[in-house]
Every structure is written in structure tokens, then in C-alpha cells.
């Protein structure tokens, strides 16, 4: 995280600054660390001892909705009788695919579609408001306001059956849809900004030379912008799923490991 922060800091007009690097690392690192801590608590399968197949099955069957817990226990039991390592791997992968498919429901798709559409509209509004105002670009809105939408997506997905896993997977699906929605609108708007203001849509910077349409349209796809979005977005479904789950009736570690 410090290396990443140093790179981000070095990319600013003022150049590398140790204090700024530390603040950037703290700003992005804290939510990520928090999200990892939540994941370690809610999905304890990753810390179960055993071969990779045992760990994978434990991970994908941890914190399942109540209606699917029996299935999870059955999968963990079934793995114990498979001795051949390639067979164990294949079985574990099959379980992982099934577990993800179980968690992606009609509601997950509906929430993801709504999140993608909301972020697309937000991007368009931010672009037009910024273009008619200070022309500071759309990045603040697409990074931070969209993050709130993803938080809500995680919470909405986990709420009905109080399943952290449903919230997490649904929230990540929503993050994917949001990224698609944001990029689709941002690339079109980038060309509009180039025509009207000759500036980049993401941060409103005006290039020294002429800005071509292709260069303008590709601006939202720049790795550092994408990375910035992902750094802020990814922890949000995790926190949303945690809030949506509410107070867990049972300790997820015990539920996950119980047979």
C-alpha cells in the first residue's frame, strides 16, 4: 500500500512527498484493512488447516444462508472420503462454482442492474454539472458517491436472509455493473468534454498539446483511475454486507466449522 501511495503521490504535480505518501496510504489502506478484517471474521474458511481443497471447500461453504448450511456440511464431509489429490481439487472447484451460483440470485442481478444504472446516471449528471461549472472533472463523484451505492448494494443483498455471503457476492456483482455503467458513460462524456472544453473528463485537466478524441475517450480507462476506483469501491460491498447482516445470531466461525 505504501508503494502504491508513493506512486500516486509521485504522479501529482508536486512530485513525491513522504508525508503525503503516508496520508494516501492511510486513506486507502484503512478501509482495505478493515474490509480484510471483516472478511477474516465472517469467512473463516481461509484459516482452516489442511490442503488447498479443504481450505477452498471450507471457505466457499462458510457463512451460507441457513437453508444451504446443510449442503455446506455435506460438501465438507464428502471431501473427507476423497483421497486422490486431483479429484479433491476438482471436487473443491465444483463446490466453489456451486456455492457462487447459489449466492447469485435474481435479487443480486436486479440490485446489480440498479447499481449499474444509478452509477451511469450519476456519472452523466456529474459530467454535465462539472462541465457547466468549475470543470473539475467527474472523478470525485464517480469514486465516492458510487461507493455509497455499492455500500447500499451489499446491505440490500445481505438483508433478506441475513447472509454476509449473499451481500458480498451481490455487492461485488454490483461493483462490476457499476464499473461498466461508469465507463460506458464516461467514455462518451470524455469525447463531449474534448469537443466543448478540450479537457479530460476524469479530472478536468487541460493537456499541453491538442487532445485527440481517442485519447480523450481512453482517459477513463487509464490504469491509475481504474485502480483508484477499485481501491475505494471494493471495501464498500464488504461493509454493506456486514451492516445488512446485522447482529449475527451465531458466531460465524462456529457455524462454518460445524458439521
Amino acid at each position: 500500500m505504501l508503494v502504491l501511495a508513493a506512486l500516486l503521490s509521485a504522479a501529482t504535480p508536486e512530485g513525491f512527498d513522504l508525508g503525503q505518501t503516508f496520508l494516501v496510504a492511510l486513506f486507502f489502506g484503512l478501509p482495505l484493512a478493515g474490509a480484510l478484517a471483516v472478511l477474516a471474521y465472517r469467512l473463516p474458511g481461509a484459516v482452516v488447516a489442511g490442503d488447498p481443497a479443504t481450505r477452498l471447500v471450507a471457505l466457499v461453504t462458510a457463512d451460507l444462508p441457513p437453508a444451504r448450511r446443510e449442503w455446506g456440511a455435506a460438501m465438507r464431509a464428502e471431501l473427507t472420503i476423497i483421497d486422490d489429490a486431483p479429484d479433491r481439487r476438482r471436487f473443491a472447484l465444483g463446490c466453489a462454482v456451486t456455492a457462487v451460483r447459489m449466492s447469485v440470485t435474481g435479487r443480486s442481478w436486479a440490485v446489480a442492474t440498479a447499481a449499474g444504472a444509478s452509477v451511469a446516471v450519476l456519472t452523466l449528471v456529474a459530467s454535465r454539472v462539472s462541465l457547466s461549472g468549475e470543470r473539475g472533472g467527474i472523478m470525485l463523484a464517480t469514486v465516492y458517491l458510487s461507493a455509497l451505492i455499492l455500500f447500499a448494494a451489499g446491505a440490500v443483498n445481505s438483508r433478506p436472509d441475513r447472509s454476509f455471503r449473499s451481500g458480498l457476492i451481490g455487492g461485488l456483482l454490483a461493483a462490476g455493473a457499476a464499473l461498466v455503467g461508469m465507463l460506458m458513460v464516461a467514455t462518451v462524456e470524455a469525447v463531449h468534454w474534448e469537443l466543448v472544453a478540450g479537457a479530460f473528463v476524469m479530472d478536468g485537466d487541460i493537456p499541453k498539446g491538442d487532445l485527440g478524441r481517442v485519447e480523450a475517450a481512453l482517459d477513463p480507462l487509464s490504469p491509475h483511475f481504474l485502480l483508484l476506483h477499485l481501491l475505494v469501491w471494493v471495501p464498500m460491498p464488504v461493509f454493506g454486507a456486514l451492516v445488512g447482516t446485522g447482529r449475527s445470531v451465531e458466531n460465524p466461525r462456529l457455524v462454518a466449522l460445524r458439521l
Binding site: W71, M75, I81, F91, G94, C95, A96, T98, M102
Partner: peptide, 22 residues
């Protein structure tokens, strides 16, 4: 019958057989 036994007998993957059984 065990689920894994069905996987082997039918030569189908666990990711196919278990959702069907569910």
C-alpha cells in the same frame, strides 16, 4: 447413495451433480 458416488458413476462434475440434487 452418496453424491460423490453419483459424480463418479455418471462422470459428471460435483458442480453439476450437487445443484441438481439440491
Amino acid at each position: 447413495t452418496y453424491g460423490y458416488e453419483l459424480c463418479r458413476r455418471l462422470d459428471l462434475k460435483a458442480g453439476t451433480v450437487y445443484p441438481i440434487l439440491i
